[in-house]
């Protein structure tokens, strides 16, 4: 069921429009009520030009990017991300990924390096480890 994968494979990029709604909805869905993620005035008071995406949303989007690609039977094992340029409203983040390691076995374990760039720079770099069941999809 899962197509064969190789080290060096590039995942198709995913462009995510960074709407104000996405930033606020992501913050609230992750139960993060820090004002910098929903109140532009208070964000400015704290030195930010506008509200910005919280790290939990970025984490969720990175996870989604991986499982969108590998399918619902793929199981996330590790997600490690570091943030750089903030995701402000009105921008677009483009996620890209490349398989850097494949550990043989059943299931196969893949390590994917993920980057997300927005209009002002690199928002996120991350390493994701995911297991890819070869047959039957009963892995989860």
């Amino acid at each position: 069921m899962t197509p064969a994968h190789s080290v060096g494979d590039e995942l198709p990029p995913l462009e995510i429009p960074l709407t104000r709604t996405l930033i606020v909805a992501g913050a609230i869905a992750s139960r993060d009520y820090q004002d910098v993620h929903h109140d532009a005035d208070l964000a400015r008071e704290k030195g930010s030009p506008d509200i910005f995406m919280n790290i939990l949303t970025t984490n969720g989007l990175v996870g989604r990017y991986i499982t969108d690609h590998f399918g619902p039977c793929a199981v996330l094992r590790k997600v490690a991300i570091r943030l750089g340029a903030p995701n402000y409203p009105g921008d677009v983040m483009r996620l890209t990924g490349r398989i850097t390691e494949l550990a043989a076995g059943e299931p196969v374990e893949a390590t994917v390096r993920v980057t997300g760039d927005n209009g002002i720079g690199r928002h996120v770099t991350g390493m994701v480890t995911v297991t890819l069941p070869q047959k039957g999809g009963g892995g989860a």
């Binding site: 909805a25 609230i28 949303t57 969720g60 989007l61």
Partner: peptide, 13 residues
């Protein structure tokens, strides 16, 4: 469900 809606995640899992 709220999380998946916010993230645009439609995974069947």
């Amino acid at each position: 469900r709220h999380w998946c809606e916010a993230m645009g995640d439609t995974s069947a899992a």
